[in-house]
Nucleic acid binder design. Structure first.
Lengths: 254, 254
DNA sequence: TTGCGGTAAATATCTGACATTAAGTAGGGT
DNA sequence: ACCCTACTTAATGTCAGATATTTACCGCAA
């Protein structure tokens, strides 16, 4: 309910940095839906910046649906359901978050669980040689950085690149933009799981099978391979892959 | 390359109105990728508003990826591929556009064509009684307003509500937010098609079959019914439902 | 209780000045 | 001739203060 411990690093220029701090305070669940956000002047005083920067930062939060501002009333925090999850700025904020809102993690993963098998099919149908090369290069990066536990985040970046290349292989702008959800989801993953060596090897093997299915243009195999990759991911996240609100379309399986 | 004929209505307050005008000028393709956008002071003079409002409007365009601004260089228009299609603000702008960028229409429709059959499945699996009631009410609204050609836009709103209710029936935040693409897509539809009486009756019948499939919890039937609805839509739009870059996953069909 | 007006509090906007960044340009040294 | 520096210019970014507008709240009277 307060921003007492929040601080703006001394030389961090731009209203961007301030917006990030404020966004993180909301994304991590510090404020409840409907709570009154601090007034502009309080923020000015607390962070020692001009009203202009505060207003710019708040405008950015507004455009992402995190807050709602009306003259005379003040600034209130909007409910999580109305946050603008698909904005790239939001993805960036979520990725930089140490402890994201639990419901957020669940919702995004539930989406991946329902959508990615289908995207795997699309990729197997539409991938060009260039797409395949991209996927392959990302996979090799994953393999290369897998051995050294000190390169966890590099590994995560290759992981993101792998799945993002699959989204891009759909060759549709909308699907492609959804791929931005991957980064926060996967960053959250490596921060939560302990990355046992055997779990990692297993994960790699499942990724390889997905790559092969796409390379061989086998949509159905790609769908199943994606499901197995996500099973592994769910286990690493400590989530139950079944029993979510969004179930996999089991009726599709022959 | 110029904004000569663009005008801001006299009493339209808020930087919102200005942002809408500028956004429309970009979304309709008036400026090419990489073009220099007018300078702040020129915009101030042309529209007769303060620099502050211009800056707020431009900030909104920036947050949606339409433009990129750097001190010293100026404001340049970003390529269509980097526009932020999934932002609700963008959907609103696109919906209010008389002549949207043709590639935009194609991309969004290609997405619907690939995703909505799948969403239909999800809805058939996860819809609650409340969801069903929402879908049904929207359908009745469509039927009610179908007879009178003077109520075209009311009909379109019910059409949007129908499909949006299906997106919502997936009970996942991410899918739900994608439903915002529907409004611009469907508004564009009624502005292009001539809405022959028989085509409208046919469309209604296909919607009814989709509703029934969801009500009976038959995912596969829902998928096929959605495909048929979109076939009708493609015909009304004058698009070829096959041969797009994103094909339907035909391999799924038994 | 309801309706009206007044006051306070918050955000929205205007104005003008200054700071920062980036690109181009002229000049001097090698 | 070439490169490097310093200056100029032009654009966006930031600051500060004053004013306008909206909203909520309170007192008061019909």
């Amino acid at each position: 309910m307060s921003l007492s411990e929040l601080q703006l690093a001394p030389k961090s220029g731009g209203s961007r940095a301030l917006a990030t701090i404020l966004a993180h305070s909301i994304l991590s669940g510090r404020w409840g839906s409907g709570d009154l956000f601090p007034r502009e002047l309080d923020l000015c005083e607390h962070f020692g910046v001009s009203r202009n920067r505060v207003r710019n930062a708040l405008a950015e939060l507004t455009s992402n649906g995190l807050i709602e501002r009306t003259a005379g009333r003040g600034t209130v925090v909007r409910p999580l359901e109305e946050w603008n999850l698909l904005d790239p700025q939001m993805s960036e904020w979520m990725a930089g978050l140490e402890a994201p809102h639990p419901q957020l993690v669940r919702e995004v993963f539930a989406f991946r669980l329902s959508a990615e098998p289908f995207i795997g099919e699309l990729a197997a149908l539409s991938a060009t040689d260039q797409d395949l090369a991209n996927i392959e290069r990302a996979f090799e990066g994953m393999c290369d950085s897998a051995a050294d536990p000190a390169r966890r985040e590099e590994h995560a970046e290759h992981d993101v690149a792998f799945h993002d290349a699959i989204y891009r292989a759909s060759h549709n702008l909308v699907w492609r933009q959804m791929g931005r959800l991957l980064r926060p989801a996967i960053i959250a993953l490596i921060q939560r799981s302990h990355h046992q060596a055997d779990s990692l090897a297993d994960s790699l093997e499942r990724h390889r099978q997905l790559l092969d299915a796409i390379r061989l243009r086998q949509p159905e195999a790609a769908r199943e391979a994606t499901e197995r990759v996500l099973e592994r991911t769910a286990a690493d996240l400590g989530l139950d892959p079944d029993g979510r609100k969004v179930r996999r379309p089991a009726a599709l399986s022959p």
